[in-house]
Design a protein around this nucleic acid. Structure first.
Lengths: 260, 260
DNA sequence: TTCGATTTGTTCGTATGTATT
DNA sequence: TAATACATACGAACAAATCGA
């Protein structure tokens, strides 16, 4: 429990000389990974944490400042600091970027998608999937296909790939019975906290099966999104390929925007 | 020159009660808008600025912290704080998101585009353009069409719309004679500093003229990007529609990533 | 090359304000 | 009302990087 530290880092870091607040941040992150404070829980007060790490309040606050900027935790004056939970709001603000065309645009006021699971299978990772998820080739994975609708019309076809080892008992029943977002399920049931994602977008032509499911013509233009979702220390936890019908919707990317 | 202030804001702000460091940030932003420190110039030292605003160094630093986060200024230990300039690096990192497919991906190591200007015309804003640029309907605008190539092959067709009033003497000669990025030209010649952009992406089919210029078949899938570029206080300064051939390239969107 | 002045970065401590319970 | 927790603001000391004499 005594994690007192001194500047420069404990281990004889030959080159990686880092400030004290970064070391404090590392220790806080380690405790978060280990589940010392589960999703939604309050962290100890700043005074207590400063005492535990034997640093000043200012140094501790600087460490938490960065965790707040990365949306790992949230602070509320008078209440405390909490492990950020996944919910509809966080999804819409940081992970779901499809908005209705012409609809003002501002994030937040957009419609929430409804999901229908089309298939749920156990399989083995392809070479490319294994490389991207940092698994052995042929490692067991879960493949899940979902059709997402906005205002009742199907707009997005999602193919999700998960490392089976990370989601031990995940079944189609559990997956479809969730009463919150998919990332909320990952977080609360498996302790896997999706913190950010990296996406690559391109334009493609609809093939027969996608066209049928999205109720468009074969050969219609679709937006293809390849996403990798990452957790603490950029550990990959999910691959997802989305095909989006951009006839009535589009992908919003606000760059350099800081939420505050 | 004496801009001493006190907490709570000078004017009797009935509702907008804001902390002192925000007021300091507002004054700094105002000076930046007025050109007190041009692009690339050093700001006075933190000690001097703290004295000028009659606040502590910590409060001043907190104000500058936010300007750094918004990439308005950059700090260098031992050298000073400088007005961020537009250059190839900043372009690649924050405004140009097209990367070669499969090429590792990480921003920074991507290839720099070469631009060829196809047309440069004076015209009047459409109703929609005027609304988005906050101009009168029919206000004079500049329309510029550019073809961008990567590694020698044309990949992107850009249509740019600028409020003519903001770019008084801009001519095709000046535009094409620039020896740096377009945003560097805006910044150094017209004092217009592009700070962030908001983009909307969709998939479309190539029409005849775009197909000819991009050397693809009519009906091939293209990524369409509608961008609005914004300056201080979210003032719109440029509209741009890009058509991207995503056969060999794709759009990179790293979300929740904080550069540090 | 060395040294000193300048500037930002880190860390500490303290006091007070504001929001919540 | 009182206690608790985060937010703001001040000041001081030292470290690290830079630059010019």
């Amino acid at each position: 429990m005594n994690q007192a530290i001194q500047p420069g880092g404990a281990a004889g870091a030959s080159t990686g000389f880092q400030p004290l607040y970064r070391e404090v941040k590392r220790l806080l992150t380690q405790s978060l990974i280990e589940g010392e404070w589960p999703a939604g829980a309050a962290l100890p007060s700043e005074t207590k944490l400063a005492g535990r790490f034997n640093v000043s309040i200012g140094t501790l606050r600087k460490a938490i400042d960065e965790l707040v900027a990365e949306r790992v935790v949230t602070r509320h004056q008078g209440r405390g600091t909490f492990v950020a939970t996944h919910n509809a709001n966080r999804l819409m603000f940081h992970f779901f970027h499809i908005v209705k065309k012409g609809g003002g645009g501002r994030d937040g006021g957009t419609e929430y998608p409804t999901t229908r699971t089309l298939s749920f299978k156990r399989a083995r990772a392809t070479v490319d999937e294994a490389r991207r998820l940092i698994l052995e080739s042929g490692a067991p994975v879960l493949r899940i296909r979902n059709l997402l609708s906005l205002a009742g019309t199907p707009v997005i076809l999602d193919d999700v790939v998960l490392p089976a080892a990370m989601f031990a008992d995940l079944s189609e029943k559990i997956f479809t019975a969730r009463d919150n977002t998919i990332y909320h399920l990952y977080q609360t049931r498996y302790g896997i906290n999706v913190l950010r994602s990296s996406e690559r977008l391109s334009a493609v032509l609809a093939e027969a099966d996608a066209a049928r499911l999205l109720k468009i013509k074969t050969g219609a233009p679709l937006l293809a999104i390849n996403r990798i979702a990452l957790s603490y220390r950029d550990t990959p936890v999910e691959l997802r390929r989305s095909l989006v019908n951009t006839a009535e919707h589009e992908y919003a990317s606000d760059l350099g925007k800081l939420d505050r």
